[in-house]
Write a protein that binds this DNA or RNA. Structure first.
Lengths: 103, 103
DNA sequence: CACTTACGTTAGCTTAAACTAACATATTGG
DNA sequence: CCAATATGTTAGTTTAAGCTAACGTAAGTG
């Protein structure tokens, strides 16, 4: 799950994830969207994302189509929801304290 | 929100977040938990986490107490839930396709 | 006020990760 | 098979981020 965070924590990769969120995209088209980043660099980033399970790869002829793989984010999503719960727990604790004071 | 990801994407900082999840901890106690990381290094990590809004700092005499700040994870949590929704959308689309074929 | 405790800060070094350039592979069309 | 297209791979360089050592600060203690 930490691999997920590391894969996301790079500006180019983060941008790629947004691109392949809704529609499947070939590597070349993804690379064209970037002004200052070369195609090989994008290719390497795609590999990192694929290894982390955050995108899927499908070959169609000479092309390789990439797409977001939502399941890959599951564990991290759960962790953040746990963190969020800490907030609710505190609100609950504060409310109980308040209740005690009143009685 | 990208700052959130970058702050989390470092092993020591990630470990610190777990530590201060439930209880408030002074900087020194946090540093002691690590075998191979010095106190100044931990101090720098705490600063990054604080700047990203992921932990709160409270001063008590000469001590500084740190604690998880759940609100800081809100935006990232929302993003991951959006990513997750992509999965549900596809399942829905697939189900509709199936339905069409049947009729 | 001097001393200690608990931390933070900064300049400079070190290392890991991203990038580039050149080359490799795989599919399609003629 | 040859050429073109689309993409991946790798060795070596560059750069950003973490670390260390030394110093600075602020609150409590005798």
């Amino acid at each position: 799950m930490f691999e997920t965070i590391q894969a996301m924590a790079e500006p180019t990769r983060f941008a790629i994830l947004q691109m392949v969120r809704r529609r499947e995209m070939p590597a070349g088209e993804i690379a064209l969207k970037f002004k200052a980043i070369t195609r090989p660099a994008v290719s390497q980033h795609l590999r990192v994302l694929k290894d982390a399970g955050l995108v899927s790869e499908r070959r169609q002829g000479t092309r390789r189509l990439y797409r977001l793989r939502p399941e890959g984010f599951g564990p991290l999503k759960n962790l953040l929801e746990d963190f969020w719960d800490s907030k609710l727990e505190r609100l609950k604790a504060a409310a109980e304290k308040q209740e005690k004071r009143r009685s």
